[in-house]
Simulated scan of single mutants.
Amino acid sequence: MPARNLGRELLGQMLASIGEYGFWNYYTNTGYKETIAKVYDGVKCYLNVWKLDKNEVLVKE
Results as ranks from 00 to 15, higher is better:
Asn5Phe: 15
Leu6Asp: 03
Gly7Phe: 03
Arg8Met: 07
Arg8Tyr: 11
Arg8Asn: 07
Arg8Ala: 07
Glu9Leu: 10
Leu10Ser: 05
Leu10Met: 08
Leu11Thr: 14
Gly12Lys: 08
Gln13Glu: 15
Gln13Asn: 14
Met14Val: 11
Met14Gln: 07
Met14Asp: 05
Leu15Met: 13
Ala16Asp: 14
Ser17Val: 03
Ser17Met: 12
Gly19Val: 09
Gly22Trp: 01
Trp24Asn: 06
Asn25Met: 06
Tyr27Asp: 01
Tyr27Ile: 02
Thr30His: 07
Gly31Arg: 09
Gly31Cys: 07
Gly31Phe: 07
Tyr32Lys: 14
Tyr32Leu: 11
Tyr32Gln: 13
Lys33Thr: 12
Glu34Thr: 12
Thr35Asn: 07
Val39Ala: 05
Tyr40Pro: 00
Tyr40Gly: 04
Asp41Ala: 12
Asp41Arg: 12
Gly42Thr: 06
Val43Gln: 02
Lys44Tyr: 15
Lys44His: 08
Tyr46Cys: 02
Leu47Ala: 12
Val49Trp: 05
Val49Glu: 10
Trp50Ala: 03
Trp50Leu: 15
Trp50His: 05
Trp50Ser: 01
Lys51Asn: 09
Leu52Ile: 06
Leu52Ser: 09
Asn55Gln: 11
Glu56Arg: 06
Glu56Pro: 00
Val57Trp: 06
Val57Thr: 13
Leu58Ile: 10
Leu58Arg: 10
Val59Glu: 13
